[in-house]
Amino acid sequence: MAEDRLVVSSPPHITSDAQTSVIMFWVVAALLPVTLYSVYIFQARAAVSIIMAIAGACGAEAALQSLMKQKVTLSDGSAALTGLLLALTLPPMLPWWMPLVGGVAAIGLSKYVFGGLGFNIFNPALVGRTVLLLSWAQYMTTGFFEKLQVDTITGATPLYVAKQVRDGLVRYDFAPLHKQYLLANPYGCIGEVSALLLLAGAGVLLYKGIIDWEIPATYLGVVVVWSLVFGADPVFQVLSGGIILGAFYMATDYVTSPITPKGKLIFGAGCGFVNMLLRFYSGLPEATAFSILFMNALAPMIDRFTIPKPFGWVKADAAE
């Protein structure tokens, strides 16, 4: 009798074909053009960093899950994506083992300390980057620029110059830099090699409904408005310092950003605000990672205070 085999479970009995692994695949796919282009520009140095970061993240995930006797879930692609995102935030010429350490830190410190996929508070890739930044600062920041000899005017990064411009210390025209940041920027992190390719990938993610518009919109909106109000070059502010990568790929990380639509708007605006605050009023011009990590900490609270009103809500309801 066929009946023995009938499955009895709660509705709905059909579901969409969306899957966690497919979502992760699309994010990786969206990042693929910029990844390949970075390898073209930076050659083997970028390739080694990318491979090592992914290896570190995947290795840590597999090792920790085996250690905790959990099912190893490398196939959901989230560890690989963490590794790739981490690599894209790194300078292109670190010692080979450093991205590996970063990948392990991203997964171990950020994800599994809090209980694995879905439970981490801080963006894993940015935690990995921060660990490297605090441990080997000279490799992660100015050392990189000095070795490449890219001093635009005063021996500092362009963003530092922007701060000096704002303070009236120097004059500098950023317009010629726009094209460089959009098309081929050899002086930034691996993922900053072309803002245009990052934007193209983000367009795909928005179109596929994989990321929502709210966070990038308010993030970039605040950066632009701030720039206009305080006399900075808005296009340069958006294109530099990893803000495109941060706004579209880091701040939109599902687990570490608010889930409510209103919460996303607030979160994005907060990222933009903290980012600009750190850029112009701290000794830390490359502030994108810290601003997103800071807002990550606030995300649960933002969610808590932006619970949507249910269908048909009327004020009198609350009083009853």
Binding site: T20, G118, Y254, T260, P261, I307, P308, P310, F311
Partner: peptide
């Protein structure tokens, strides 16, 4: 849950 928010965008009664 990966907190992707698809359920929030699907819910016709604006729940989480």
């Amino acid at each position: 849950c990966i907190r992707c928010g698809r359920c929030v965008r699907a819910c016709p009664t604006f729940l989480v």
